[in-house]
Amino acid sequence: MSLRVESLSHTFKSPASEPRTVLAIESWALAEGDQLLLRGVSGSGKTTLFNILAGLLRPTTGAVYYDSRSLYALPEEARDRFRARQIGYVFQTHQLIGALTALDNVIMPMAFARILPPSAWRRRGLELLAQVGLADFAKYPPRKLSTGQRLRVAIARALVNDPRLLLADEPTAALDEVSGASVMDLLQETCQANNAILIVASHDPALMSRFSAVIDLRGGMLVEPEAVTT
């Protein structure tokens, strides 16, 4: 699956303040299997771009295409189903559901994607938890897991439907160097194996060497990085 963005902009409107345009991308495309590091300071529009790419936030102008399909031309329910089946999203704050166990959190996207039958959900969920090193923590609620473990549950959840696009927002922010490297290995290897697009939003300089494609988001616009430090 390829990704293409055209004339994309997003403006936040608030009755209390002037409209604020946080994103303005003329044209941008990624091919199947591409892996991209998206850099940008806090407030540069990374999360807004991710939300738009995930079909969660309708852009003010422009369009997002997956292959030839315009994401926002789809009815909302079809867009929800598309997101469940094709997009994995690792949130910066993990966003696990406290009332569910680690395994149930991982199973949830399968229930909405309906790719596998319900009888296969548990096996697949356990498989993913084992893949992120949490086989023994399946029954744990998120509150009993460490920050790193919660992140790995969030990664397992994002990968469980073999998405064609994986969005990871600051995945290493709360981890030490070794754990961060391990998480990045997992994300990159899985996407490579699935030939999926991987976009990692991070300002962690340690990640620069891992990506052949790096792009900066500055003032809502995508620009080539001025300097690459490794």
Partner: peptide, 18 residues
């Protein structure tokens, strides 16, 4: 008290109807 969790369900592909 769990609007955030509802938003998570939606972000994972759960529809409004769900």
């Amino acid at each position: 008290s769990r609007e955030r969790e509802i938003a998570i369900v939606r972000s994972l592909g759960g529809s409004r109807l769900h």
